[in-house]
Amino acid sequence: MTGKTILVMGGAHVDRRGRIAGETTPGASNPGGWFVEAGGGAFNAARNLARLGHAVRLVSPRGGDADGNIVAAAAAAAGIEDTPFTFLDRATPSYTAIIERDGNLVIALADMDLYRLFSPRRLQQRAMREAVAAAGLILTDANLPAETLAAMAKAAAAAGVPIAGIAISPAKVVRFEQTLSALAFLFMNEAEARTLTGATPENPADWPKALRAAGLAAGVVTRGGRGVIAFDATGAVLVTPPEIPALGDVTGAGDSLASGFISAWLAGRDFGEALRHGVAAAAITVRSPLAVAEEMSQAALAAALSLVPQAEWMA
């Protein structure tokens, strides 16, 4: 796929996921097993975008440790141009999660202290200014400090480059609050949307109104296995995800939805089709035990897209 490089600046760390083998028993020892892989919202999306044929450059803080090597190897395997800020005396960030047998999250712990060192001053470096100016789109996530996200949005606007964000979690999405009006899109789930708006609409059609009132011009709200909502200045659409008979792991599903949406949007597809592509990419991911499905490709996306219903325009 041709086009300018997608510049990804955000979370790229190590995911450790413990999967419970039987029925979950809170407050007790549960038999299961551990799985370790590279992760991070921005990095998951970056690898999916690279596998969909886009040129991708990654910029993210990293420690000089074995976990940093895991991230570097994953970036190389995906064909990403990897240009980290490396701190040899620090630990690479990590995310540790407990997953139920059916693939749903029980609880997680995020050790993300190193991301604080991705300060706005980093964006003032000549190499970073040139990278922003040369990008076709910037993708970031709420793992970075709020002031860095604001500086990134300002730099993107000055360069005339669209910027999109991934919310990451209800606790972190607030870092986008001062940047919402500058985003081309923000990808979030209902819990994150609720944090931004303070609203809990009974009718899903009311999410766009609530998010616009919070200052967001365009975004995507996932709702588990229910319809996914996307909106921009032209209106709002809903796409119902297809049934997934064998759920692998929901980790990374939202990140892959963002990558499928962005890939289609950059290719000039209309708003509803972009959302369908995002839902198809998420369907590929949730069938996989990995946060980034190895089979992700344009061909796999086309096959998955055939199972996704047409977008419904919402009043």
Rank of each mutant, 00 (worst) to 15 (best):
D270T: 00
A304N: 05
G165W: 04
A108R: 11
N189I: 08
T179L: 03
A315V: 09
T83R: 15
A210L: 03
R51T: 01
D15E: 13
E295D: 14
Y115G: 06
L183E: 05
A182V: 11
M112V: 11
A191I: 00
G235I: 05
M9S: 08
D249S: 02
L123C: 06
G268P: 09
Q125R: 14
N30E: 04
G11S: 15
L238Q: 15
V71S: 08
F261Q: 02
A159S: 11
E202R: 14
A151N: 07
A155E: 12
I284R: 11
E147I: 02
A311T: 10
A38L: 09
L196E: 00
L257C: 05
A193N: 04
S263N: 13
G219S: 03
D255M: 01
E23A: 15
M112T: 06
M1I: 10
T96I: 15
N48H: 09
A199W: 00
A304T: 01
A28M: 10
A38H: 08
S29A: 14
E295R: 13
T195K: 06
R16P: 00
A157F: 00
A182K: 07
E243W: 04
A205W: 04
D82M: 04
H13A: 03
E147L: 04
L180A: 05
V221G: 02
H54E: 08
L144P: 00
Y115T: 04
E147C: 10
Y95S: 08
T86D: 02
A302T: 10
F231D: 08
A217E: 12
G160N: 06
A73Q: 13
R223I: 08
D82H: 15
P120F: 06
Q298D: 01
A21E: 13
A281S: 07
L180P: 12
L139R: 00
A50M: 05
A233G: 14
A300N: 06
L144W: 07
A77Q: 12
A133L: 03
L247S: 10
A171T: 09
A171P: 00
M128Q: 13
A191H: 12
Y115F: 15
G215C: 06
L180C: 03
E312M: 14
I20E: 10
F271R: 15
T86R: 09
V221E: 01
L307Y: 01
A302H: 04
D270R: 01
F87N: 02
F85S: 13
G252N: 01
F271T: 01
A258C: 07
L211W: 03
S263W: 11
F85H: 11
V106R: 15
W265Q: 14
A50K: 00
A158L: 09
W313L: 13
D82E: 06
L109D: 15
R129D: 10
A246C: 10
A303E: 14
M296H: 15
D141E: 09
E81K: 12
A76H: 12
E100R: 15
A97L: 13
F187N: 02
P120A: 05
W313A: 15
N203G: 05
A21M: 09
A46N: 03
